[in-house]
Design a protein around this nucleic acid. Structure first.
Length: 314
DNA sequence: AAGTGAGGCAACCGCCGCAGT
DNA sequence: AACTGCGGCGGTTGCCTCACT
C-alpha cells in the first residue's frame, strides 16, 4: 500500500488559513527561517500539516511575491515556456521568481488555456495563407535577431546596469512580448481587473507582512544555514527594483537564480547558477529569443493583427 | 432581492526524487 | 541494497465571489 500521510490526519486542521495562523507562521519563519517544515507545526502549535505550512509560506506569505495582474510580458513567457517545458510549473516559475508555481498554474488553467483555445479557433478560421505578403507589417528576422541580441547583451551586463536599464528596456521587452503574444490585451485593462480583486482579499496579510518585512533580516541571512527553498526570492527582484506600475524588469532580472531547468534538462543549484552567470550559457529564455527569430523565417508568427495564429505548438 | 451558474483561487492529495540510515 | 522520512511538484478539488437572470 502507499505510504501513510505525512501528517496524522487526526486533529489536523484543513481549509483556509486564518490571519492568526498566518501571524504565527510568519513569526516562526522570521525567527528560524524557512525550512525544516516538519518541525514547524510542532514548534508553533499550529494544527497544520507541515506541507500545508510550507505551501502557505511559499504560495502566499513569502515576501516578494507578486499576485495577480499578470502582464502580457509574463503571459508571453509563460505560454512559451509551457510550450517548451510542458506543465513543469516549478521550472516555469523559476523564470518568474516573483510568481509562484501555483499562481502560474492557476493562471494557465483559468486564463491562458482559454485564450489559446480562442485564438486557435480564430486562427483556424482566419489563417493567413503562407503566400501572404506580411513583410510590410512583420519585423524581419534580422530585426528580431538584432533586437534579441540587444536583450541578451543586456542580460550579460552587470546587475547595476540592469537596474538602470530596466525602465527603458522593460518597455521594449514588454512591447516585444506583447506583440508576439496572441492575447496581448491593453495593460491597463489587465491591471485594473485583477489587482483590485486581490487587494481586497490581501489587506490583512499585507499589513501583517509589512511589519514582517521591515523587521526581518535579509532573506539570505535568515535562510543561510538552512536548506535552500527553491522558491526563495532573489533580492534583486524585490519590489524595490520593480518599475512603477508593477511591470516586470528586463529579462536579466527574470533569469533564474535558483534551481532551474536548463536546456539540457538538468537542474542547477543556485550557487552553480551564480557561477554560470559569469559565463552564462544560453538559457531557455535566451534560446527562445534566438529561436523566435528563426520562427519568423518560417512565418509562424502573425504580428499584423494579433489574432490569426498562435505561435505555440500544442 | 433572491437564486443560479460560472469563474477564479487557495489549498489538499498523492506521487516522486533525494538524502540519510 | 533496502528502507524511511522529508521536501517538492503537478493534478485536482472545493469554496468563495461575482455577474447575470
Amino acid at each position: 500500500m502507499g505510504r501513510p500521510p505525512c501528517c496524522d490526519k487526526v486533529g489536523i486542521k484543513k481549509g483556509p488559513w486564518t490571519p492568526e495562523e498566518d501571524i504565527i507562521l510568519v513569526s516562526y519563519i522570521q525567527e528560524h527561517g524557512p525550512g525544516y517544515w516538519r518541525s514547524v507545526p510542532i514548534n508553533t502549535g499550529l494544527m497544520r500539516c507541515s506541507k500545508s505550512c510550507r505551501l502557505r509560506w511559499t504560495n502566499y506569505l513569502r515576501p516578494g511575491i507578486r499576485r495577480g495582474n499578470f502582464t502580457p510580458h509574463e503571459e508571453g513567457i509563460i505560454v512559451h515556456l509551457q510550450s517548451l517545458l510542458g506543465n513543469r510549473w516549478a521550472a516555469i516559475a523559476s523564470y518568474l521568481p516573483q510568481r509562484t508555481d501555483n499562481d502560474i498554474k492557476n493562471y494557465w488553467n483559468t486564463h491562458l488555456k482559454k485564450k489559446l483555445k480562442k485564438h486557435q479557433a480564430i486562427g483556424a478560421i482566419f489563417a493567413v495563407p503562407p503566400s501572404s505578403d506580411l513583410s510590410t507589417t512583420m519585423p524581419t528576422a534580422a530585426d528580431h535577431v538584432n533586437h534579441h541580441h540587444h536583450l541578451i547583451t543586456t542580460t550579460a551586463d552587470s546587475k547595476d546596469s540592469n537596474v538602470r536599464a530596466a525602465s527603458s528596456n522593460q518597455a521594449e521587452v514588454t512591447q516585444l512580448i506583447a506583440r508576439r503574444s496572441p492575447f496581448a490585451a491593453p495593460a491597463s485593462l489587465d491591471a485594473d481587473s485583477s489587482s483590485s480583486s486581490y487587494a481586497s482579499s490581501m489587506d490583512n496579510i499585507s499589513k501583517l507582512l509589512n511589519g514582517f518585512m521591515k523587521t526581518s533580516p535579509p532573506q539570505n541571512d535568515a535562510a543561510a544555514d538552512l536548506k535552500p527553498s527553491t522558491t526563495e526570492v532573489n533580492p534583486l527582484l524585490s519590489f524595490d527594483h520593480m518599475p512603477a506600475g508593477g511591470a516586470l524588469p528586463v529579462f536579466a532580472d527574470v533569469l533564474p537564480t535558483h534551481p532551474v531547468l536548463m536546456e539540457h534538462g538538468s537542474y542547477h543549484e543556485p550557487k552553480q547558477q551564480q557561477q554560470q552567470q559569469a559565463h552564462a550559457p544560453l538559457s531557455l529564455i535566451e534560446k527562445w529569443l534566438l529561436d523566435e527569430a528563426a520562427e519568423q523565417v518560417v512565418g509562424l508568427m502573425d504580428l499584423s493583427n494579433d489574432c490569426c495564429s498562435v505561435p505555440m505548438m500544442f
